[in-house]
Design a protein around this nucleic acid. Structure first.
Lengths: 154, 154
DNA sequence: CAGGTAAGTTCCTTTTTCAGACTTACGACG
DNA sequence: CGTCGTAAGTCTGAAAAAGGAACTTACCTG
């Protein structure tokens, strides 16, 4: 597998995996959604080596998931802020949190609770069909090759 | 970071990342949802080294995501089948596919289309609030420490 | 001018991953 | 009977990635 061109495969999962498919990137994104923005803050909360953090942040900026925004001119200091493309990763993160809550919990209970400001309640994320609104499950879905696959396969 | 105990962190995202947080595991799971079940089939469709495939499958079995089921007694042959815990990863995979469709597409169009057998239509997965049914977005969610976090932090 | 802070970079060691050959156990072919 | 083919792995040496810790730059504070 050539990881450097994974984002051009005719498969949307591969393309997503190319961007967020490693441990550190996912943990960095968790911090982003918890409003962490600065290099030192990421480093101290994750205990990631500065080298890797620097590299991963660059990659996320390169893919348009974070923006590097100056917050001080002298000395030059930057913070990393989620773009819309980055904010759109929220369902992935929430799906992972929900799976962890459901299947990897221990006797201590959930680490975090999520409140939906709009309705005021504690909630779980549920994935539904855009057409009929019903909850989705793997066995009710049939997959067809789309135009992007047919062209790639020939 | 000690990756070997990541699944015990007081964070559901970390625990999920401990299980599915690497490139190969996610691609293997994609194949599982496309009904691939056998060692040789995974190997030839992914071009993963046999060594890594063997290791990743063992790990998925160990975490209860796949079951190793014999399909031939002599010679002994096995296939790998998603458990319910594994099937429950579907929202994560679909969320990743959807993000890839939305943000990593090219002029060729979508690689795959998904049909909801229940309603018969092509759909996108949408993540909604379990309480009010509204589509979720990061800015409308407030996070509270839950019991599992409070106990861990002290 | 010594000490502190933020955001990196550099260097060296350890761990993972990769590519490909080897193994085991069977069935079919000639 | 010996050889080929297949499925599901294991083993090995080389290459790539990750880890740990010190170093750098540019400013600010007492």
């Amino acid at each position: 597998m050539k990881w450097d061109t994974l984002d051009e495969e005719p498969c949307s999962l591969s393309r997503t995996v190319a961007v967020v498919g490693d441990r550190w990137t996912l943990l960095i994104l968790r911090e982003c959604f918890l409003r962490v923005r600065r290099f030192e803050a990421f480093q101290s909360s994750l205990q990631i080596t500065r080298h890797l953090l620097s590299e991963r942040l660059k990659k996320l900026v390169r893919f348009g998931i974070l923006r590097r925004v100056p917050y001080s001119e002298a000395p030059k200091r930057y913070e990393y802020i989620l773009t819309q493309k980055g904010l759109d990763l929220y369902p992935i993160i929430m799906a992972m949190v929900h799976w962890g809550d459901t299947h990897m919990g221990d006797e201590r209970g959930r680490p975090l609770l999520h409140e939906h400001k709009t309705c005021g309640k504690l909630f779980d994320p549920v994935m539904v069909c855009s057409e009929c609104g019903e909850a989705l499950n793997a066995k009710q879905v049939h997959v067809h090759a789309g135009p992007g696959r047919k062209e790639a396969v020939g």
